[in-house]
Simulated assay, not measured.
Amino acid sequence: MSNKESVVEVLAKDVQGPGVVPCPNPKMALWSNHPRVFVDVTHEGGGKCPYCGTVYRLKAGEVLHGAH
């Protein structure tokens, strides 16, 4: 069984507050909307939306300010 995940690479400027990005994101089709959640991208490998399974991760080379 193949389940291809959607992966979205985000820039540091797209990250809000404590290292999160909103899902659904503005580029997603309206028909695919679900309740807005915030996915933590501060961990290696990023984070995954619990509703649609989209994986969000920081683009290679991007650095979050205040991250250690």
Score class of each variant (00 low, 15 high):
1 M>L: 03
1 M>E: 03
3 N>G: 04
3 N>S: 07
3 N>Y: 09
4 K>S: 09
4 K>G: 07
4 K>W: 00
4 K>N: 06
5 E>G: 09
5 E>L: 10
5 E>C: 06
5 E>T: 06
6 S>L: 13
7 V>P: 01
7 V>W: 00
7 V>N: 01
9 E>H: 10
9 E>R: 11
9 E>N: 09
10 V>F: 03
10 V>S: 01
10 V>I: 11
11 L>G: 05
11 L>M: 10
12 A>Y: 05
12 A>K: 11
12 A>G: 02
12 A>P: 01
13 K>W: 00
13 K>A: 05
13 K>Q: 04
13 K>P: 00
13 K>N: 02
14 D>Q: 12
15 V>D: 10
15 V>E: 10
16 Q>P: 00
16 Q>H: 08
16 Q>S: 08
17 G>Q: 08
18 P>T: 04
19 G>S: 01
19 G>E: 01
19 G>V: 07
19 G>R: 00
20 V>D: 02
20 V>G: 02
20 V>E: 07
20 V>H: 05
22 P>R: 00
22 P>W: 00
24 P>E: 01
24 P>K: 02
25 N>L: 05
25 N>P: 11
26 P>W: 10
26 P>H: 07
27 K>Q: 08
27 K>S: 03
28 M>Y: 05
29 A>C: 02
29 A>Y: 08
30 L>T: 14
30 L>A: 14
32 S>K: 14
32 S>T: 12
32 S>Q: 12
33 N>E: 11
34 H>T: 11
35 P>L: 05
35 P>W: 03
36 R>V: 15
36 R>D: 11
36 R>F: 05
36 R>T: 13
37 V>D: 10
37 V>C: 09
37 V>W: 07
38 F>G: 13
38 F>R: 12
38 F>T: 13
39 V>F: 08
39 V>A: 07
40 D>K: 14
40 D>S: 15
40 D>H: 13
40 D>Q: 15
40 D>I: 04
42 T>I: 15
43 H>W: 07
43 H>E: 12
43 H>Q: 14
44 E>A: 14
44 E>R: 14
44 E>W: 12
44 E>F: 15
46 G>T: 12
46 G>E: 12
46 G>D: 13
46 G>R: 12
46 G>H: 12
47 G>A: 15
47 G>I: 15
48 K>E: 11
48 K>T: 14
48 K>N: 06
49 C>P: 04
49 C>I: 13
49 C>E: 13
49 C>G: 14
50 P>M: 14
51 Y>E: 15
51 Y>W: 15
52 C>I: 15
52 C>N: 08
52 C>A: 11
52 C>S: 09
53 G>S: 11
53 G>M: 09
53 G>H: 07
54 T>N: 04
54 T>M: 05
55 V>I: 15
56 Y>K: 04
56 Y>W: 02
57 R>P: 00
57 R>A: 09
57 R>D: 04
57 R>T: 08
58 L>S: 08
58 L>V: 10
59 K>D: 04
60 A>C: 03
60 A>L: 08
61 G>N: 10
62 E>I: 06
63 V>F: 04
63 V>A: 06
63 V>G: 01
64 L>I: 03
64 L>V: 01
64 L>F: 00
65 H>E: 07
65 H>T: 03
66 G>M: 05
67 A>F: 01
67 A>E: 02
67 A>D: 05
68 H>A: 13
